[in-house]
Design a protein around this nucleic acid. Structure first.
Lengths: 246, 246
DNA sequence: GGGGTGGCTCAGAGGTGGCTCAGAGATTCG
DNA sequence: CGAATCTCTGAGCCACCTCTGAGCCACCCC
């Protein structure tokens, strides 16, 4: 059975081989971080720093998906996109764009079912978007049974952004949602505040681990309120999410 | 059968050969201690004192894992990390970092599922983290049957930081947990207080062996409480952990 | 049996880590 | 343009953890 480095069931190609992803960004540090995060999902990842090498690598790799910075040193995203579609017409593309980038141009690009995230983003978000894209494109065989995360009586529908505990709807803010998703994707495993910070908060966030404690406290009020607690503190180590019935 | 110098079953590469680890630290004493501890696990270990020689050694050794100090005389962690991934894309990295230098510099680096420990650390912790990394990366063939330590009716889940005795949950403080892990990794073997101090407490701890007695006493209260004792004193020699039923 | 050593446990000081509250800036939405 | 929401900072508080010191007990050797 095919599992990721994280021990989670992998999202694979229909033939069971790892999904192939190309990361295109001119910032080598960012490319490195993205590459690492996607490898962690069990995918085969290659990176490129500009449009030209992106196309040649794509030709070589025939990727299922591409994470593409729209601002590149040599070419713009549209040109690369056209080239990619010539190489592999059914490729999924996740655009990375600056917050203040012109919205309508992006909207035009993503018309084809592609998606985009604005910088600075969190790794959880990029990974989730990419999983969504691949799933919708029918490119991925899902070993789990759908876009729902279940831990005990806690259920998250990632697509609908809906969370229920024991059937009751739990309303979460964006950050709370992302944090809970990370916890639910790693149940019964202690996650350190640093790990949480790395995955859930944007890569340029300079703040201290104190925010994690704060948001854990928010989550507890909404998720554990009055019920048997699922979010546990492991002093000196981090937090664990565990099904209520043990 | 492949065993370590310690007599424990070894964590090996899938082909049965020893795991290969590269230690990178500019403090020769620390590198020496780490190297020794990892060799003790039955692994093949090489050391390097700076980024440049780290990369050339990596090229030569093709290590499965790297223990990497983020503060190096010549380069920073990101650069080395990138170089390592070029040499061997699936390498696991365990970062060593000063306690107060954390958060800002490390943020992002660990994104891939790599891990880190803060100085001063205990050898048990470094070894445990490294084993966890290798196991999750599927790099290691496990001769034991999983991330669980079992001695008699005493069970430790290292990932969840959960300990049960005869099915009952035992709650432990960080130091108690580390001490018990060391005992459980060396069952039926007498461990001297000096050995315990060396492995469980951080390398810069100046205290006396009295703390070991104290923590053994804590453990007994929690682990042996009211049951058949598993932790035995060997007067003048140290302590042994033995299964209760034999 | 007596003295000595090694080991155990209790009590408590000091430090640290984690939780929560309140509020300020930012952002989104009407 | 104003209101509501969201995110993060700072401060204070509490609980827990770690280690010190002291006294006591058990074992061992003389």
């Amino acid at each position: 059975m095919n599992t990721t480095r994280s021990g989670r069931p992998a999202l694979t190609r229909p033939d069971g081989t790892p999904l192939r992803v190309l990361v295109v960004d001119d910032d080598p540090d960012l490319a490195e971080v993205l590459t690492g995060a996607l490898r962690y999902e069990g995918w085969e990842v290659r990176a490129a720093g500009d449009g030209v090498s992106a196309l040649s690598t794509a030709h070589d790799l025939l990727p299922d998906a591409v994470v593409l910075d729209v601002m590149l040193p040599d070419t713009d995203g549209f040109t690369v996109l056209r080239g990619l579609h010539e190489v592999k017409p059914d490729v999924c593309v996740l655009f990375l764009t600056a917050r203040d980038a012109v919205e309508d141009r992006i909207a035009g690009i993503t018309a084809g079912g592609d998606d985009y995230v604005t910088k600075p983003f969190s790794l959880e978000e990029v990974v989730a978007r990419l999983r969504g894209l691949l799933r919708r494109a029918g490119m991925a065989r899902q070993l789990e049974d759908g876009p729902r995360l279940v831990v005990g009586d806690l259920v998250m529908d990632e697509e609908a952004r809906e969370v229920t505990r024991a059937g009751e709807l739990v309303e979460l803010s964006p950050t709370e949602f992302e944090l809970l998703r990370f916890l639910m994707r790693n149940p019964r495993r202690v996650l350190s505040k640093a790990q949480i910070l790395d995955r859930v908060w944007s890569y340029d966030f300079g703040g201290r681990a104190h925010v994690v404690e704060l948001y854990i406290s928010y989550l507890r009020k909404k998720v554990d309120a009055g019920r048997e607690p699922m979010i546990h503190t492991v002093r000196g180590a981090g937090y664990v999410l565990r099904p209520a019935t043990r």
